[in-house]
Design a protein around this nucleic acid. Structure first.
Length: 467
RNA sequence: GCCAGCGUAGCUCAGUGGUAGAGCAGUGUCUUCAUAAGGCAUUUGUCGCAGGUCCGAUCCCUGCCGCUGGCACCA
């Protein structure tokens, strides 16, 4: 049996999830469900990026032990995936010593030939407990959070990774789609980035700076592995790397990494370089989605327009939100979220579209005592989904819904009372429901249940109309 | 600043060298199986601005304006 392994980026757990995380989880889930329905053994993974220094800072600020802080916050993300109806098979935590620490250290050992020590000098703000570059400071060369406070010049020895060595190889691999980056403009961005000489990157922090949090560097207890090196590796640590080789061989390499546009470089350049160095297989593709704006404005904590997905799910249900993400948000570009638009789409496509169609057919069956023998059609491949064009895939399905509505109006089955005719509608509706499964799993299941036969009853509306 | 892309009906977007389309919203109408749902019909556009090439440009070129993304240690 062939396998398909999808990952979503592991969210940074120092803040609660917002709609952007929800979008990514849904996209990943659709891809995974789609391949599962095609008969593949499928794995969907995400987890918690827990080893970053900012988590330590946030936990200290809240007066909570770090471990407890990351556990609580990571749990919120996991809850969100469930509320969205996403089926994650593995949720790999960065702080998991048994799996992730072991895996991170194994990757480190495998990369050793290109890891070297180098001293790093930077401007350190004691208030923020963080390094800054000159560009990040105000005109007086001071940190924006702590004006008036002088920054310290701190010198520290860190381990570096010889990224520069892999430049030519990376250009090759990205150009010829060995690592396929979707969409093309993101691929081009990476290639243009690779036109400049690559610099080696720091992959460790002193214990002092890392506040003793994170994965210890093998053989050097004074340093911790820098988050990126172990965070990317969660895609491997979650499927057995370093602790279950049989499982690892089954799943790795990932078929697709689903990520946001802000972290393309880490996935398309750093990550493959680590893997090349370690002699491991490379991910086959990287799908990059955009970000949300809210009513046309950038989503930000300071503006206070961050949308809480839990509230929306509670109010409208998970499938409507999934539908909005998949149909209304362009899969690779930024999209806008507004509740008024959400309601419009809900009424037009869900209540009046698939919901009403289901209700009218069910009622026709009930009134005419139509009985059926149920045979489910096979799930078939969809080139739009293969190309991550979720909106187009749904557009096609909604054309079928419209067609069926037109057919019913033309036939006037309420006059003919022709059971054969009505059975044809059922067949077509079931086709639509089957194709709908990866996108709106709950709705598809409800329709398939309702039309399981032999007798068919009308039921409560799938999507009550919103006022 | 440099590089890439975008700017088309109220909204979201598609599109082509011969003066434009879809969906939603709006309006009218038919119908009643259905969630005041469905069907049909239909209004609206200086296709960002200014030049240029061409018999002719929304689609090609130049400039300008506006927006978005990338330009390394930011999950």
């Amino acid at each position: 049996m062939s396998t398909f392994y999808v990952t979503c980026a592991i969210p940074y757990v120092n803040a609660p999830p917002h709609v952007g995380h929800a979008l990514e989880f849904v996209q990943g889930d659709v891809v995974a469900r789609y391949h599962a329905l095609l008969g593949k053994d499928t794995m969907l993974l995400s987890g918690g990026d827990e080893n970053a220094l900012k988590n330590v800072q946030a936990a200290n600020k809240a007066g909570i032990p770090v471990k407890q802080f990351v556990d609580t916050n990571t749990e919120k993300f996991l809850e969100l995936t469930k509320a969205l109806g996403c089926r994650f098979d593995v949720w790999q935590k960065g702080s998991d010593e048994k799996h992730n620490f072991v895996a991170a250290q194994k990757l480190w050992e495998l990369c050793k030939k290109d890891i070297f020590k180098k001293s790093y000098e930077g401007l350190y703000c004691v208030g923020c407990e963080q390094y800054y570059t000159k560009e990040e400071l105000d005109e007086n060369g001071q940190c924006l959070e702590h004006p008036g406070k002088k920054l310290d010049v701190v010198k520290e020895e860190n381990y570096f990774f010889r990224l520069s060595k892999y430049q030519d190889q990376l250009v090759q691999l990205i150009t010829n789609d060995t690592i396929k980056i979707i969409p093309d403009f993101r691929k081009n961005e990476m290639l243009s980035f690779l036109k400049q000489p690559l610099q080696d990157i720091s992959i460790s922090r002193s214990n002092e700076r890392a506040k003793n949090w994170g994965v210890p560097v093998p053989g050097d207890p004074s340093q911790r592995i820098y988050v990126w090196f172990d965070a990317l590796n969660i895609y491997q640590s979650g499927v057995g790397f370093g602790w279950d080789e049989k499982m690892y061989d089954k799943w790795w390499p990932a078929d697709v990494h689903v990520i946001g546009k802000g972290i393309t470089r880490f996935h398309a350049i750093y990550w493959p370089a680590f893997l090349l160095c370690a002699g491991l297989k490379l991910p086959k593709s990287i799908f990059v989605h955009g970000y949300f704006t809210v009513n046309g404005a950038k989503m930000s904590k300071t503006v206070g327009n961050v949308i809480d997905p839990f509230t929306l799910i509670e109010k409208y249900g998970s499938d409507p939100l999934r539908y909005y993400f998949l149909r209304e948000i362009p899969s690779t570009a930024d999209g806008d979220f507004s509740e008024s638009r959400f309601k419009e789409v809900y009424n037009a496509d869900l209540a009046n579209g698939i919901g009403n169609l289901t209700a009218r057919i069910a009622k026709l069956c009930e009134l005419n005592a139509v009985h059926i023998k149920n045979t489910l059609p096979a799930f078939s491949a969809n080139s739009h989904v293969d190309q991550y064009e979720f909106s187009l895939a749904l557009e096609e399905l909604w054309k079928d819904i419209k067609k069926l509505d037109v057919q019913i109006n033309t036939d006037k089955p309420w006059e003919t009372k022709d059971a054969t005719q009505i059975k044809k509608y059922i067949t077509q509706l079931i086709h639509i429901a089957v194709a709908l499964q990866p996108f709106l799993p709950d709705t598809a299941r409800k329709i398939l249940d309702q039309f399981k036969g032999p007798a068919i009853q009308s039921a409560v509306p799938l999507f009550p109309r919103l006022i």
